[in-house]
Every structure is written in structure tokens, then in C-alpha cells.
Design a protein around this nucleic acid. Structure first.
Length: 498
DNA sequence: AAAAAAC
């Protein structure tokens, strides 16, 4: 089913077409019609499924109808992290370019002045992290009484981060008569309760877990001893053809120490973690994007939502504790059709965490072959048995849609070492390639009667519809979901459209 | 076990 059949307006279809998309992902096909009808919705889906567009697209059409009033935002999207909020704002900008909508991005770590100014002018959509929103609300800068469309995104992550009380409080400040959309990758009891309390007769759309890996990512596990990790990493950085790499650590202190250590070894290194000032985070990301540095040592603050072009390698200096985080981390490479390599350093103590990751992805992470990396070989190996997995051939068709791929010359500055990258290449089940490939097809109105039912049931006027524009030949991919290519959006209030 | 998020 093409986007044109979902009931979206022409202007929106044009913006979608400009982005090159023709086919909605399952979550989009399932969510967009009921959202346009004004229904509440529980969407069980995670990043990589096209979830963001599933609510951004219909919201643009819904909001296209009315006008904003000073200090009374018409809709609110809650995100767990600043970076995710910024990414949603990017989506609004991209798809709302033919609509005159205004938005405000309310996140911490930046000056409040511009945010307050935007609020005073009146905005159609508020994209916020809970802390700053509550802060501004407490200062009397926001009236939520006109906010009759609420999106709670990444609800389970909000739970992890202790935001549920805030969410509940925010919900009580919104009008009772409203439309609420809740998205979550999982539905633990607390989230179910939240949904039962704040949603009315919601449609439930569930998209099966995207296979957690990407065809373009060559993932390997490098077994080592914990006291040798830095040496092994340094050797890998020299041996691999690293153009741009993100190195993930589990702790902020490790990020700091490793960054310092690599700098001493003359690598062009930056760092990012949550204890840094927002300005410093942005500055480091900008240096990284500009190629001033080609290695970024990061905490999980950078695991999700960041889409930096041309990251050739992801290294896990530590095996992440949460298997989900592994998937998110390695997803920073192999984006937009480019090839990427994800190397995870694992010690014997990590075997449980590794097993969990493999359980989640359904594929063993191939062990990097008998490299001569120091200490990688002298480790008594309890996991040898799993190694039997033969290497499957790499996909033969190479997508060439990234002519602007990083010049290989921009490699690590240190001289090459003697590590033989004799490594196993495996193909993991895809996730990003074909999101439109039917997962669990969610229930939705058939395309035939969809329109008339929609028009009957809608509480809001339907946007005008005309036939679809000529489709461009590209499918929605996860880069869209996580898509955030530019610098951290400098806008706080942006007028969409011309 | 950590990280994230408001000042």
C-alpha cells in the first residue's frame, strides 16, 4: 500500500515524496489512519520501524487545520532524551515543509530565553523532555489547557529513567478531552497501567521486533582480557580501515579515561557523555561531523537517535548491560546503505551479557578469527563451542548510493600495527533494509473502505486528498526513524513551510 | 553494575 492510500494530505504526500519514500512501514500503515480519525493509540514498536513518522505525519495534517494561540501549544510530544527530541523536531521540519506549523523544542541544557519567546508566540507542536517542560510549566510559561493531542514516545525508556511520575503529572494538566498516542518497545505492567489511565479505548498496533541487525553491519566479537582492552582497541584502530569510529563505553569515567588515553596515543579523539555541558556535547559532535576528529568515545547518550553520516566503525569497549543498547549502538554504523563494522570487546565476565545479546538478535556474534591481537588469544575460551558458526557470504549486491562515503585516507593517525584482521564476516538478519516487508500486519481499515469510514468517523475535518504524486524509488528505512543528519538543530522555534 | 533528565 502506498502512502497515498493512508488519507494524508497532498502537501504532506509531496513532502514524503521529496524525501524519496513511497511505502509506509507496517507501523505507519497501521497507525496513520486511526490517528487521523482522532483515535487514541498504543503503538508497540521500537526504533528502526519507522515509528517517528507514524505519529509525525498524521500530526502534521491534524495540526494543519487550526491555529496556535499564545502560550497555548496545541500538541505535545514527550521524549526521554534531548537528542531524541531534537530528532523528532527534525522530522517535523522535513515532513512539514509545506505546512505552516510552528514548533518549540523544549529541552534542558540550553538557554530558556528562546524557548519562552517561542511559547509566547504560540506553537502548534511542543517537543519536550519532561524536566524542562515541568520547569517551564512551573514558571507559568506554558498553558496546557489547549493541548488536545499528546504523544508519549519511548514510554518504557521513560520508565527506566524514572519519568513516569512526571508523565502522570503532565497528563493531569492536559484537557481530558484529547487524543493520546503512546509508543513503547515493550509493555511492562507500569506502562499498561499508564495506558489504561490516560488513554481512551485505544487502538493497539503491534509491530514485531525488527530483527536487530542490519545487513550492512559486519559485527564481530573480539575476546580479550579486561586488562588488555586498551591495547587491543588501539591495535584494532590501527589495523582496521577506520575512517570514522564511535567507541562506546558503559561508564562516563571510562569514556573520559579512554579518550585521554587515546589522545596520548595520538589518535584524533573526542568524547561525549551526559556529564558534559550541552554546549560541549554539541561542540564535540560538530568536530566529529566536520572530520576534525575521527574517533568519538561515547556513553550511551550517543547510542540512540544519533545519525552521523559515514561512521565506518562502532567499537564496544564494554559490552553493554542491556542487550537493546547493543543493537542501538551498532546501529550508528552501516546507515543509509553504507557498510559498517561493529567490533565488540568482550571478556569472560561478559559472557552472560553476550549471550543475552545473541538471544535478542537471534544470531551469534561471530568471534573475530584468531587474530594476533595481544591477549586476545591467550584467553582460555569458554565460548569456543559457539564459534562453529560458519561464515556466510557477504551480500554480493553492494549499494552504491553513498558516493560521498568518507575518504579512506582519513584514518587513524597512528601507524598501523601488526594485527591481522583475519575476520569472519557474517550476515545478520536484516532490519533496516525492508521495513515495509510484512511483519505482523496490524489490523487497520481496508484500503477500500478506509476513506469513507475515516471521513465518517473523523472528529476533525479531513485534509483534502488528491491522487498520489509520482513515487520516487526508495523505501522507508530506519535512517528515517533515527534520522538526524544535521547539526543539533539550532532552532527553538521554527516556522515550517515558506 | 550505568546512563539519561531541570535549575
Amino acid at each position: 500500500m502506498p502512502f497515498a492510500d493512508l488519507g494524508l494530505s497532498d502537501d504532506l504526500l509531496r513532502a514524503i515524496g521529496d524525501s524519496g519514500y513511497t511505502e509506509p512501514t507496517p507501523i505507519q500503515a497501521g497507525a496513520i489512519p486511526p490517528v487521523l480519525m482522532g483515535k487514541d493509540l498504543v503503538g508497540i514498536a521500537q526504533t528502526g520501524t519507522g515509528k517517528t513518522a507514524a505519529f509525525v505525519l498524521p500530526m502534521i495534517d491534524i495540526l494543519g487545520e487550526g491555529r496556535s494561540r499564545a502560550r497555548m501549544p496545541r500538541s505535545l510530544i514527550l521524549e526521554p532524551t534531548r537528542e531524541l527530541a531534537a530528532q523528532v523536531a527534525e522530522n517535523f521540519e522535513k515532513y512539514g515543509k509545506y505546512h505552516k506549523l510552528s514548533m518549540a523544542l523544549l529541552i534542558g541544557g540550553v538557554q530558556m530565553g528562546d524557548q519562552i519567546k517561542a511559547l509566547e508566540k504560540g506553537v502548534d507542536v511542543l517537543i519536550a523532555t519532561p524536566g524542562r517542560l515541568m520547569d517551564l510549566f512551573g514558571r507559568g510559561k506554558i498553558l496546557l489547557t489547549g493541548c488536545d493531542l499528546l504523544v508519549i514516545d519511548e514510554a518504557d525508556r521513560m520508565l527506566d529513567m524514572g519519568f513516569i511520575p512526571d508523565i502522570e503529572e503532565i497528563c493531569t494538566k492536559l484537557p481530558k478531552q484529547r487524543q493520546t498516542l503512546l509508543f513503547s518497545a515493550t509493555m511492562p505492567p507500569v506502562i499498561q497501567k499508564l495506558a489504561a489511565k490516560f488513554l481512551t479505548d485505544p487502538r493497539r498496533i503491534e509491530v514485531s521486533r525488527p530483527a536487530s541487525s542490519n545487513l550492512n553491519i559486519d559485527a564481530q566479537l573480539v575476546e580479550t582480557r579486561s586488562d588488555k582492552k586498551r591495547d587491543v582497541l588501539r591495535d584494532l584502530l590501527r589495523a582496521e580501515d577506520v575512517s570514522t569510529a564511535i567507541i562506546f563505553c558503559n561508564r562516563k569515567t571510562t569514556v573520559r579515561e579512554l579518550a585521554t588515553s587515546l589522545k596520548r596515543s595520538n589518535f584524533a579523539v573526542g568524547q561525549i557523555h551526559g556529564d558534559m555541558e550541552q554546549a560541549a556535547r554539541i561542540a564535540e559532535l560538530d568536530r566529529f561531523k566536520a572530520g576534525e576528529i575521527n574517533i568519538l568515545v561515547a556513553s550511551d547518550v550517543a547510542a540512540r537517535g544519533l545519525d552521523i553520516k559515514g561512521v565506518s566503525h562502532v567499537f564496544n569497549f564494554d559490552v553493554p548491560w542491556q542487550p537493546d543498547d547493543y543493537v542501538h549502538r551498532i546501529g550508528r554504523t552501516g546507515r543509509a546503505g553504507a557498510k559498517g563494522k561493529a567490533l565488540t570487546l568482550a571478556t569472560r565476565e561478559d559472557s552472560e551479557a553476550v549471550a543475552q545479546i545473541e538471544k535478542l538478535t537471534g544470531t551469534p556474534i561471530p568471534r573475530a578469527g584468531a587474530t594476533s591481537a595481544p591477549a586476545a588469544s591467550d584467553e582460555p575460551d569458554a565460548k569456543e563451542a559457539k564459534d562453529a558458526k560458519p561464515a556466510r557470504a557477504r551480500r554480493s549486491s553492494t549499494r552504491k548510493d553513498r558516493a560521498e562515503a568518507e575518504p579512506a585516507a582519513k584514518t587513524a593517525k597512528a601507524p598501523k600495527a601488526e594485527v591481522a584482521p583475519e575476520v569472519v564476516t557474517a550476515v545478520a538478519p536484516d532490519r533496516d533494509e525492508e521495513p515495509a516487508r510484512s511483519a505482523d500486519k496490524p489490523a487497520r481499515p481496508s484500503s477500500r473502505d478506509g476513506r469513507s469510514r475515516r471521513d465518517d468517523e473523523r472528529e476533525r475535518p479531513a485534509p483534502a486528498r488528491t491522487p498520489a504524486p509520482a513515487p520516487a524509488a526508495r523505501q522507508q528505512d530506519a535512517a528515517d526513524e533515527d534520522g538526524w543528519n544535521g547539526p543539533l538543530p539550532s532552532f527553538l522555534s521554527v516556522s515550517l513551510g515558506s
